[in-house]
Design a protein around this nucleic acid. Structure first.
Lengths: 233, 233
DNA sequence: GTTAAAAGATGACTTTTGTCAGTTCTCAAA
DNA sequence: TTTGAGAACTGACAAAAGTCATCTTTTAAC
């Protein structure tokens, strides 16, 4: 009974983190009844670029990368989604196929919410629509910033920024290392560079005592220095 | 009288091109009464990064670049807005300062619509809100594509893409040259590279008979070739 | 029309980034 | 415990992009 209660959207604290918090009791009830919990293992896809999504995914646990393959065949990670984020919202709203692929970076637990729940919310609940609108406006701003960074900053700067971003958004483990552990290749795909250059640049940062590494784990030791680097010194 | 009628939103065909078409008669009337027509000369700013906008700008005529200065001090053009586009929408909706600067590339004629008209529309008119929502969802997809292009494609590819984009969106003049004339420096700011490299690459395209130039005007003569280049051959 | 300023263009050079080939390390399945 | 696949790493080199200096052409103001 208690376990069952936990799985009801009305009681789910996750939804407080995203636009679903603007939904009314009845709407949440409807979602609860049609939603589906899914477990996705590390490395497995949630969806692939070009797919028509039947709904959105609300992340309860774990982390997913959202990426897109360029015409050159290289993968670019556009976003890293974690607890509380709703994935696939854009495509459902625009009634288009997804422009991104989603792959689990950890073992994940997500709720799949059929799209009719979302479109119903948008048709009937102005508060919800406005919450989604504001969220998208914010995403659009972030996207503009990323465009500028990608086109105007060096790999050095972008890697410094990425490391700081990871620390700020995913925190540290017990030993002070970045809690989110990415492969060198995934880091390179976030930064938008080749894996080799990413590794080399990390090695340089280590030599300059900006970071420490232990296996694939990374610890930021000179955040001020990384910040300066990010801004171009 | 006839001239006056033309300036009323209800009769303005421009609005058919954007989300304002979802507004009701009364709402358009309200906008008509509070809107203000402005003429902006080539080179003049409509607004600057960091400003708090009192409303949105609906473009009646002319073209504007929307750009952002990176920490490195270089300008990146994120979007080129022309007839029918609404500028400043994102900031007004998110209730934030603008993240972009807007500068007229031509002499422009715009309508300034106070933000209360927009927020009222969003509060009272679900159709309007949904139109804005879909528009932003589309913009978000485009932004993702730009991110991938910027980070994964070469200057060659991005310049080819930019030239094709300009032809597709702004058409040709009587002699078959791109109707939208940008300075080499503005083209470089769209592509995200240095002016010198932009000029050199244009010269290369010319030598390879992909384009012709006459002063600052550009004519695309081998669009198939440009398309292949864009996709990486 | 003259002329100063801005934009366009080019050469020489440096730095940044990418690529390929290969080695070492890690971790998990047999 | 072995082993083998994949990830991390390194060196050598090539290609792409950026920078600086300089010159020419165009544009716009006088």
């Amino acid at each position: 009974m208690a376990a069952h209660e936990q799985t009801r959207c009305e009681n789910c604290i996750i939804r407080e983190l995203n636009s679903l918090r603007a939904l009314k009791k009845e709407e949440l009830k409807a979602i609860s009844d049609s939603k589906e919990m899914r477990v996705i293992k590390k490395g497995e896809p949630l969806f692939k670029e070009g797919e028509k999504l039947g709904g959105v995914y609300c992340v309860r646990n774990g982390v997913s990368k959202l990426s897109k393959i360029s015409d050159n065949g290289k993968d670019q990670i556009v976003k890293i989604a974690s607890k509380g984020e709703v994935m696939g919202q854009r495509s459902v709203i625009a009634e288009q196929t997804t422009n991104l692929s989603a792959v689990a970076l950890n073992d994940m637990e997500v709720c799949f919410i059929p799209k009719h729940n979302i479109t119903a919310g948008i048709q009937d609940n102005p508060e919800f629509t406005q919450a989604v609108l504001k969220y998208m406006a914010q995403e659009l701003k972030v996207a503009d910033d990323v465009i500028v960074n990608m086109s105007q900053k060096t790999v050095n700067q972008r890697l410094a920024e990425t490391l700081l971003y990871i620390e700020n958004n995913f925190g540290l483990d017990a030993e002070g290392y970045l809690a989110l552990i990415l492969s060198r290749s995934d880091i390179a795909d976030v930064v938008g560079t080749a894996t080799e250059l990413c590794i080399r640049t990390l090695a340089k940062f280590k030599k300059e005592e900006l970071i420490e590494t232990k296996g694939k784990r990374i610890k930021l030791i000179d955040k001020k220095g990384l910040n300066q680097l990010k801004n171009g010194f």
